[in-house]
Protein backbone atom coordinates (compact mmCIF):
# COMPACT_ATOMS: atom_id res chain seq x y z
CA UNK A 1 0.00 0.00 0.00
CA UNK A 2 2.71 2.42 1.01
CA UNK A 3 4.79 1.67 -2.02
CA UNK A 4 1.80 2.21 -4.23
CA UNK A 5 1.15 5.70 -2.83
CA UNK A 6 4.83 6.37 -3.07
CA UNK A 7 4.96 5.23 -6.61
CA UNK A 8 2.00 7.38 -7.47
CA UNK A 9 3.50 10.38 -5.75
CA UNK A 10 6.74 9.84 -7.57
CA UNK A 11 4.87 9.70 -10.85
CA UNK A 12 2.93 12.84 -10.06
CA UNK A 13 6.14 14.67 -9.13
CA UNK A 14 7.94 13.55 -12.24
CA UNK A 15 4.96 14.45 -14.39
CA UNK A 16 4.88 17.99 -13.06
CA UNK A 17 8.63 18.31 -13.29
CA UNK A 18 8.59 17.23 -16.92
CA UNK A 19 5.56 19.27 -17.88
CA UNK A 20 6.73 22.42 -16.19
CA UNK A 21 9.01 23.89 -18.89
CA UNK A 22 6.47 23.59 -21.69
CA UNK A 23 3.58 24.52 -19.41
CA UNK A 24 5.26 27.68 -18.21
CA UNK A 25 6.06 28.75 -21.75
CA UNK A 26 2.54 27.98 -22.95
CA UNK A 27 1.03 29.83 -20.03
CA UNK A 28 3.22 32.87 -20.49
CA UNK A 29 3.35 33.15 -24.25
CA UNK A 30 0.03 31.69 -25.29
CA UNK A 31 -2.56 31.71 -22.54
CA UNK A 32 -1.70 35.15 -21.22
CA UNK A 33 -1.72 36.79 -24.69
CA UNK A 34 -4.94 34.92 -25.44
CA UNK A 35 -6.57 36.35 -22.34
CA UNK A 36 -5.18 39.80 -23.12
CA UNK A 37 -6.64 39.46 -26.57
CA UNK A 38 -10.05 38.58 -25.19
CA UNK A 39 -9.83 41.53 -22.82
CA UNK A 40 -8.77 43.96 -25.58
CA UNK A 41 -11.67 42.79 -27.70
CA UNK A 42 -14.04 44.48 -25.27
CA UNK A 43 -12.13 47.78 -25.28
CA UNK A 44 -11.07 50.58 -27.60
CA UNK A 45 -7.38 49.73 -27.18
CA UNK A 46 -5.05 51.17 -29.86
CA UNK A 47 -1.56 49.85 -30.64
CA UNK A 48 -0.03 52.93 -29.04
CA UNK A 49 -2.57 54.74 -26.92
CA UNK A 50 -2.89 58.31 -28.27
CA UNK A 51 -2.48 61.14 -25.76
CA UNK A 52 -6.13 62.16 -26.06
CA UNK A 53 -7.61 58.75 -25.54
CA UNK A 54 -7.82 56.43 -22.57
CA UNK A 55 -8.61 52.76 -22.68
CA UNK A 56 -12.34 52.35 -22.26
CA UNK A 57 -14.52 49.30 -21.80
CA UNK A 58 -16.86 49.06 -24.76
CA UNK A 59 -18.74 45.89 -23.97
CA UNK A 60 -19.78 44.10 -27.13
CA UNK A 61 -19.46 47.16 -29.36
CA UNK A 62 -16.51 45.77 -31.36
CA UNK A 63 -18.37 42.52 -31.99
CA UNK A 64 -21.54 44.32 -32.92
CA UNK A 65 -19.66 46.36 -35.47
CA UNK A 66 -17.84 43.37 -36.93
CA UNK A 67 -21.13 41.62 -37.55
CA UNK A 68 -22.65 44.79 -38.92
CA UNK A 69 -19.89 45.30 -41.48
CA UNK A 70 -19.31 43.22 -44.55
CA UNK A 71 -15.53 42.85 -44.24
CA UNK A 72 -15.56 40.05 -41.75
CA UNK A 73 -18.16 38.07 -43.63
CA UNK A 74 -16.31 38.50 -46.93
CA UNK A 75 -13.01 37.49 -45.32
CA UNK A 76 -14.62 34.46 -43.72
CA UNK A 77 -16.18 33.35 -47.00
CA UNK A 78 -12.90 33.78 -48.89
CA UNK A 79 -11.03 31.85 -46.24
CA UNK A 80 -13.60 29.05 -46.31
CA UNK A 81 -13.53 28.99 -50.10
CA UNK A 82 -9.74 28.74 -50.02
CA UNK A 83 -9.85 25.89 -47.50
CA UNK A 84 -12.67 24.06 -49.31
CA UNK A 85 -10.70 23.96 -52.54
CA UNK A 86 -7.16 23.64 -51.27
CA UNK A 87 -7.68 20.90 -48.69
CA UNK A 88 -9.20 18.24 -50.98
CA UNK A 89 -7.16 19.17 -54.05
CA UNK A 90 -3.87 19.32 -52.21
CA UNK A 91 -4.56 16.08 -50.35
CA UNK A 92 -5.50 14.22 -53.52
CA UNK A 93 -2.57 15.57 -55.47
CA UNK A 94 -0.22 14.71 -52.61
CA UNK A 95 -1.47 11.14 -52.63
CA UNK A 96 -1.08 10.89 -56.38
CA UNK A 97 2.47 12.19 -56.19
CA UNK A 98 3.26 9.86 -53.31
CA UNK A 99 2.09 6.88 -55.39
CA UNK A 100 4.25 8.08 -58.25
CA UNK A 101 7.41 8.36 -56.21
CA UNK A 102 6.80 5.24 -54.15
CA UNK A 103 8.80 3.10 -56.51
CA UNK A 104 12.25 1.77 -57.05
CA UNK A 105 12.70 3.31 -60.47
CA UNK A 106 16.02 4.85 -61.30
CA UNK A 107 16.54 8.50 -60.26
CA UNK A 108 13.54 8.32 -57.94
CA UNK A 109 15.42 10.10 -55.12
CA UNK A 110 16.10 12.92 -57.48
CA UNK A 111 12.40 13.24 -58.35
CA UNK A 112 11.44 13.15 -54.69
CA UNK A 113 13.78 16.00 -53.88
CA UNK A 114 12.52 18.10 -56.74
CA UNK A 115 8.85 17.53 -55.84
CA UNK A 116 9.62 18.48 -52.27
CA UNK A 117 11.80 21.48 -53.04
CA UNK A 118 9.09 24.20 -53.24
CA UNK A 119 8.32 23.47 -49.59
CA UNK A 120 11.65 24.89 -48.48
CA UNK A 121 11.30 28.14 -50.41
CA UNK A 122 9.82 30.84 -48.23
CA UNK A 123 6.36 32.03 -49.17
CA UNK A 124 7.54 35.56 -49.90
CA UNK A 125 9.85 34.29 -52.63
CA UNK A 126 7.26 31.85 -53.95
CA UNK A 127 4.73 34.65 -54.22
CA UNK A 128 7.14 36.86 -56.11
CA UNK A 129 8.12 34.17 -58.60
CA UNK A 130 4.51 33.27 -59.32
CA UNK A 131 3.38 36.85 -59.63
CA UNK A 132 5.97 37.24 -62.38
CA UNK A 133 4.80 34.06 -64.11
CA UNK A 134 1.15 35.03 -63.72
CA UNK A 135 1.64 38.44 -65.29
CA UNK A 136 -1.54 39.48 -67.12
CA UNK A 137 -1.89 39.95 -70.85
CA UNK A 138 -0.27 37.93 -73.62
CA UNK A 139 3.22 38.73 -72.24
CA UNK A 140 2.60 36.77 -69.07
CA UNK A 141 4.38 33.42 -69.25
CA UNK A 142 1.43 31.34 -68.05
CA UNK A 143 -0.87 33.12 -70.48
CA UNK A 144 1.45 32.72 -73.43
CA UNK A 145 2.11 29.10 -72.52
CA UNK A 146 -1.59 28.24 -72.25
CA UNK A 147 -2.30 30.05 -75.47
CA UNK A 148 0.48 28.11 -77.22
CA UNK A 149 -0.67 24.67 -76.17
CA UNK A 150 -4.28 25.46 -77.04
CA UNK A 151 -3.26 26.87 -80.43
CA UNK A 152 -4.47 30.31 -79.48
CA UNK A 153 -7.85 29.25 -78.13
CA UNK A 154 -6.94 30.42 -74.63
CA UNK A 155 -7.78 34.03 -73.88
CA UNK A 156 -5.09 35.67 -71.71
CA UNK A 157 -6.33 36.20 -68.19
CA UNK A 158 -5.48 38.96 -65.75
CA UNK A 159 -5.09 36.36 -62.97
CA UNK A 160 -4.25 38.30 -59.84
CA UNK A 161 -5.89 41.44 -61.22
CA UNK A 162 -9.27 39.91 -61.84
CA UNK A 163 -11.64 39.45 -58.94
CA UNK A 164 -12.92 36.22 -60.47
CA UNK A 165 -9.53 34.55 -60.73
CA UNK A 166 -7.33 36.14 -58.06
CA UNK A 167 -8.17 33.76 -55.25
CA UNK A 168 -7.84 30.75 -57.55
CA UNK A 169 -4.44 31.94 -58.72
CA UNK A 170 -3.32 32.14 -55.11
CA UNK A 171 -4.78 28.69 -54.44
CA UNK A 172 -2.85 27.27 -57.36
CA UNK A 173 0.61 28.32 -56.29
CA UNK A 174 -0.15 27.71 -52.62
CA UNK A 175 -0.84 24.10 -53.54
CA UNK A 176 2.29 24.03 -55.66
CA UNK A 177 4.29 25.21 -52.69
CA UNK A 178 2.76 23.01 -50.02
CA UNK A 179 1.92 19.72 -51.68
CA UNK A 180 5.43 18.28 -51.42
CA UNK A 181 5.21 18.09 -47.69
CA UNK A 182 1.97 16.11 -47.64
CA UNK A 183 3.41 13.95 -50.40
CA UNK A 184 6.28 12.94 -48.15
CA UNK A 185 3.92 12.10 -45.31
CA UNK A 186 1.78 10.00 -47.65
CA UNK A 187 4.91 8.33 -48.96
CA UNK A 188 5.87 7.43 -45.43
CA UNK A 189 2.38 6.06 -44.90
CA UNK A 190 2.62 3.98 -48.07
CA UNK A 191 5.95 2.53 -47.08
CA UNK A 192 4.54 1.51 -43.73
CA UNK A 193 1.86 -0.65 -45.31
CA UNK A 194 2.88 -4.25 -45.00
CA UNK A 195 3.90 -5.98 -48.25
CA UNK A 196 1.98 -9.06 -47.11
CA UNK A 197 -1.31 -7.27 -47.61
CA UNK A 198 -0.51 -6.67 -51.26
CA UNK A 199 0.78 -10.18 -51.77
CA UNK A 200 -2.33 -11.67 -50.19
CA UNK A 201 -4.68 -9.56 -52.26
CA UNK A 202 -2.54 -10.30 -55.33
CA UNK A 203 -3.03 -14.00 -54.77
CA UNK A 204 -6.76 -13.37 -54.50
CA UNK A 205 -6.56 -11.96 -58.02
CA UNK A 206 -7.10 -8.30 -57.16
CA UNK A 207 -6.08 -5.82 -59.82
CA UNK A 208 -3.80 -2.84 -59.12
CA UNK A 209 -6.82 -0.57 -58.99
CA UNK A 210 -8.69 -2.87 -56.65
CA UNK A 211 -5.60 -3.06 -54.46
CA UNK A 212 -5.52 0.71 -54.30
CA UNK A 213 -9.12 0.94 -53.16
CA UNK A 214 -9.22 -2.08 -50.87
CA UNK A 215 -5.71 -2.09 -49.41
CA UNK A 216 -3.93 1.22 -49.87
CA UNK A 217 -6.71 3.67 -49.10
CA UNK A 218 -8.00 2.00 -45.92
CA UNK A 219 -4.43 1.64 -44.69
CA UNK A 220 -3.84 5.35 -45.25
CA UNK A 221 -6.90 6.38 -43.25
CA UNK A 222 -5.08 7.94 -40.31
CA UNK A 223 -2.49 9.55 -42.53
CA UNK A 224 -5.24 11.15 -44.59
CA UNK A 225 -7.08 12.42 -41.55
CA UNK A 226 -3.88 13.89 -40.19
CA UNK A 227 -3.09 15.57 -43.49
CA UNK A 228 -6.58 16.97 -43.89
CA UNK A 229 -6.55 18.47 -40.41
CA UNK A 230 -3.11 20.05 -40.73
CA UNK A 231 -3.87 21.36 -44.22
CA UNK A 232 -7.07 22.89 -42.92
CA UNK A 233 -5.17 24.67 -40.16
CA UNK A 234 -2.63 25.99 -42.67
CA UNK A 235 -5.35 27.01 -45.10
CA UNK A 236 -7.03 29.12 -42.44
CA UNK A 237 -3.81 31.01 -41.91
CA UNK A 238 -3.62 32.26 -45.52
CA UNK A 239 -1.82 35.57 -45.25
CA UNK A 240 1.66 36.01 -46.73
CA UNK A 241 0.55 35.51 -50.34
CA UNK A 242 -2.16 38.13 -49.91
CA UNK A 243 0.15 40.58 -48.18
CA UNK A 244 2.83 40.30 -50.83
CA UNK A 245 0.62 40.26 -53.92
CA UNK A 246 -2.91 41.56 -53.64
CA UNK A 247 -3.46 43.34 -50.32
CA UNK A 248 -6.87 41.72 -50.21
CA UNK A 249 -7.94 43.02 -53.63
CA UNK A 250 -9.15 43.28 -56.27
CA UNK A 251 -12.46 44.25 -54.73
CA UNK A 252 -11.88 42.23 -51.58
CA UNK A 253 -11.68 39.00 -53.57
CA UNK A 254 -8.61 37.85 -51.64
CA UNK A 255 -9.43 39.41 -48.30
CA UNK A 256 -8.80 36.69 -45.74
CA UNK A 257 -9.36 36.57 -42.00
CA UNK A 258 -5.71 36.83 -41.02
CA UNK A 259 -5.14 39.63 -43.51
CA UNK A 260 -8.15 41.54 -42.16
CA UNK A 261 -6.83 41.08 -38.66
CA UNK A 262 -3.44 42.36 -39.73
CA UNK A 263 -4.74 45.41 -41.55
CA UNK A 264 -7.08 46.41 -38.73
CA UNK A 265 -4.43 45.77 -36.10
CA UNK A 266 -1.30 47.11 -37.74
CA UNK A 267 -2.29 49.51 -40.50
CA UNK A 268 -5.17 51.03 -38.58
CA UNK A 269 -3.65 50.12 -35.20
CA UNK A 270 -7.06 49.21 -33.78
CA UNK A 271 -6.04 46.49 -31.40
CA UNK A 272 -9.42 46.27 -29.71
CA UNK A 273 -11.26 45.74 -32.95
CA UNK A 274 -8.70 43.35 -34.42
CA UNK A 275 -8.66 41.34 -31.19
CA UNK A 276 -12.39 40.89 -31.52
CA UNK A 277 -11.85 39.56 -35.05
CA UNK A 278 -9.23 37.23 -33.61
CA UNK A 279 -11.59 35.91 -30.96
CA UNK A 280 -14.34 35.26 -33.50
CA UNK A 281 -11.80 33.63 -35.78
CA UNK A 282 -10.69 31.35 -32.96
CA UNK A 283 -14.26 30.35 -32.16
CA UNK A 284 -14.97 29.52 -35.80
CA UNK A 285 -11.86 27.39 -36.19
CA UNK A 286 -12.70 25.68 -32.91
CA UNK A 287 -16.16 24.87 -34.19
CA UNK A 288 -14.82 23.51 -37.47
CA UNK A 289 -12.25 21.38 -35.69
CA UNK A 290 -14.85 19.91 -33.39
CA UNK A 291 -17.05 19.07 -36.35
CA UNK A 292 -14.08 17.59 -38.23
CA UNK A 293 -13.09 15.45 -35.26
CA UNK A 294 -16.67 14.32 -34.65
CA UNK A 295 -17.04 13.35 -38.30
CA UNK A 296 -13.85 11.32 -38.39
CA UNK A 297 -14.82 9.63 -35.15
CA UNK A 298 -18.28 8.72 -36.42
CA UNK A 299 -16.67 7.29 -39.51
CA UNK A 300 -14.28 5.24 -37.49
CA UNK A 301 -17.05 3.73 -35.42
CA UNK A 302 -19.07 3.08 -38.55
Amino acid sequence: MRTKTNKYLRQEMTAWFMSAPALIILLLFMIVPLLMSVYFSFTNRMLIMPPHLSTKFLGLENYRRILEQNDFFIALMNTLKFALVVVPVQTTLALLLALLINSKLRFIYFFRTVFFSPVVITMVVVSIIWSLLLAPGPEGFINSFLSHITFGAFEPKAWLFDKHSSLYAIMMFSIWQGVGFQMIIFLAGLQYISKDLYEASGLDGASKIQQFFYVTLPQLRNTSVFIMITTTIFAFKLFTQVLVLTNGGPQDSTLTLVYLLYSEGFTKMKIGYSSAIGVLFFLIVLLISIVQMKLTKVNREG
Binding site: P50, N247, G249, P250, S263, T267, K268
Partner: peptide
Protein backbone atom coordinates in the same frame (compact mmCIF):
# COMPACT_ATOMS: atom_id res chain seq x y z
CA UNK B 1 -2.94 63.54 -40.34
CA UNK B 2 -2.00 60.81 -37.89
CA UNK B 3 -4.36 58.60 -39.87
CA UNK B 4 -2.25 58.83 -43.01
CA UNK B 5 -1.62 55.10 -43.26
CA UNK B 6 -5.38 54.52 -43.26
CA UNK B 7 -5.84 57.11 -46.00
CA UNK B 8 -3.10 55.47 -48.01
CA UNK B 9 -4.53 51.98 -47.64
CA UNK B 10 -8.16 52.85 -48.33
CA UNK B 11 -7.47 55.23 -51.20
CA UNK B 12 -5.01 52.82 -52.76
CA UNK B 13 -7.51 49.99 -52.56
CA UNK B 14 -10.33 52.12 -53.95
CA UNK B 15 -8.14 53.31 -56.83
CA UNK B 16 -7.05 49.78 -57.70
CA UNK B 17 -10.66 48.62 -57.65
CA UNK B 18 -11.73 51.56 -59.80
CA UNK B 19 -8.96 50.69 -62.25
CA UNK B 20 -10.38 47.19 -62.32
CA UNK B 21 -13.84 48.41 -63.17
CA UNK B 22 -15.59 48.97 -59.85
Amino acid sequence: TPAFSVFQKEIGQAAMDIVNGA
